[in-house]
Amino acid sequence: MTIANVLLVDDEVGFVETMTKRLTKRNLSVTAAHSGKDALKVLDDNETIEVVILDVKMPGMDGIETLREIKTRFPLTEVIMLTGHATVETGIEGMKLGAFDYLMKPCDMDVLMEKVGEGAAKKRGHEDKIVQARVKEITNRRA
């Protein structure tokens, strides 16, 4: 059993490969995507993805756009933004759009692991609440 199902999105192939290895070694199940569109496709096919690690600056569909799309279509999926350079504006914008957190590249592995764990927990918490609510609904209906 892995800690979490993670989707890593970055246009830098080398970065994605190494990070995949490192995260896998830390007991995460990692799926890789190299663009915003790819990421959405993966999310469509694989409902088990819990946390998306998303680079802000990408050619084509950029991080903010992708984030917006993910949040409308998969509202429960948590997104951690990776920015090349920390600007208050991008950070604030990302948070407003529902990102779980943002980190600066290159980031400390421990911090990232911590955030991923929190994100996955949050998602699971949400899902549990939904399940419980459903159960409650069904039991109430029966009663």
Partner: peptide, 21 residues
């Protein structure tokens, strides 16, 4: 240039981290 350099540096750091792992 600063922006472009940032990505290779990130990769290098990650690779070093991988070796450390």
């Amino acid at each position: 240039i600063a922006h472009e350099i940032n990505n290779p540096v990130a990769i290098m750091v990650e690779e070093a981290g991988w070796i450390q792992d």
